[in-house]
């Protein structure tokens, strides 16, 4: 809904500025009588909108080059690609990489780990910012709220390298906590490098780093909820939880669904750096996810073709997921991300 709404406003802005351009340049007024408007219609429009078109050009170039242009890289998935031979010099291998993918236990191990972590992220990380936003929203004092908000936004601006190092310094075998425990004569705890603790650890890191930042959209949605509905509900005797359930959540449901659909579309993209940095500590059995698998296969082992095939697979799954999630959203009567 937000996006559609924004598109709407953008369109209006577009129209307004167009009028301004037309009015401002003064070269093109309404067509003089007797001239056939449709003959030179396109040219006239281009001339009329040339400023806007110029403004749009960099963005268009960006998408053409970095998004559509980059799609051609997918041909690597069908080649035994050797970087310094280039696309033209490398051999074509047809679907060999995809056949290998089906029977490659390392690939399926990465898929399994990715799905597991993605599911954990969906269940534990997705609702966390919502809860935090509701909490922040219920803080009355503006100064206090702004302060808390700033504090919880901060970790977003730390790089994963710092976050991971921080967790290792605190929870590692030679870290602060284990230092205390050993001074107290208690046994150590094994968190870093313990495969069983890996899932909870990466989710905890993600929540610590990104939860605050992710509240922004929820907070914006919450500020749009009609105050009068709360008053009406309160007058009818609804307590905090009932107001939450019957007023707040229904009001921001479109935003939740939208974000959920977007999240599902990126279900397999669980992040790279965080996992790349921690893979060595738990080994590939637990720590290898699709992104690190692609990295190690492509860059570390030079098997660019196979890595591209795995990347393509991931992309296709992503498209299918976003399409399916959007359909489900429509069924539920929500706008979703787009409407066909």
């Amino acid at each position: 809904m937000t996006i559609l709404f924004r598109l709407g406003t953008a369109r209006e802005a577009f129209d307004v500025s167009m009028t301004r351009v037309r009015g401002g340049t003064g070269t093109t007024g309404p067509p003089p009588p007797g001239r056939r408007p449709e003959r030179r219609g396109h040219l006239r429009r281009i001339r009329a909108d040339r400023v806007l078109l110029l403004v749009a050009a960099p963005a268009l170039a960006y998408f053409l080059f970095f998004h559509y242009g980059a799609l051609f890289g997918n041909v690597l998935a069908f080649q035994d690609y050797v970087p310094f031979l280039g696309v033209s010099g490398s051999q074509w291998v047809g679907l060999a990489h995809f056949e290998r993918m089906v029977t490659d236990p390392l690939f399926w191990n990465a898929v399994k780990n990715t799905l597991l972590i993605a599911a954990l992220q969906l269940v534990f990380f997705f609702p966390a910012p919502l809860a935090l936003a509701l909490l922040l929203n219920s803080i009355v004092g503006d100064t206090v709220r702004r302060f808390v908000q700033s504090v919880v936004y901060l970790p977003h601006f730390l790089s994963w390298v710092i976050v991971v190092a921080l967790f290792q310094q605190v929870l590692g075998g030679a870290g602060v906590v284990n230092g205390w425990l050993s001074t107290l004569g208690l046994g150590g705890i094994s968190v870093i490098g313990n495969p069983d603790a890996y899932g909870p650890l990466v989710i905890a890191q993600l929540i610590w780093k990104e939860c605050g930042w992710a509240t922004i959209i929820f907070l914006a949605a919450l500020s749009q909820v009609d105050e009068q509905q709360y008053e009406a509900a309160a007058l009818d005797g609804a307590g905090y939880w009932r107001r939450l359930w019957h007023v707040t959540l229904p009001a921001i449901r479109p935003v939740i669904v939208l974000l959920l659909v977007l999240r599902l579309g990126e279900f397999l993209s669980i992040g790279f750096e965080q996992f790349f940095l921690q893979r060595p500590s738990v080994g590939p059995e637990t720590g290898e996810v699709l992104e690190t698998f692609v990295y190690y296969t492509g860059f570390a082992n030079g098997d660019f073709g196979y890595a591209a095939a795995v990347g393509l697979f991931k992309g296709v799954i992503g498209v299918v997921l976003i399409y399916a999630a959007n359909k489900v959203a429509h069924r539920l009567g929500e706008q979703g991300v787009y409407k066909a």
Binding site: Q168, G172, A174, I192, G193, S281
Partner: peptide
């Protein structure tokens, strides 16, 4: 490793 003789964060 079982005897805990290695630097605990060796792998990182």
């Amino acid at each position: 490793v079982e005897a805990g003789t290695h630097y605990p964060d060796s792998l990182t």
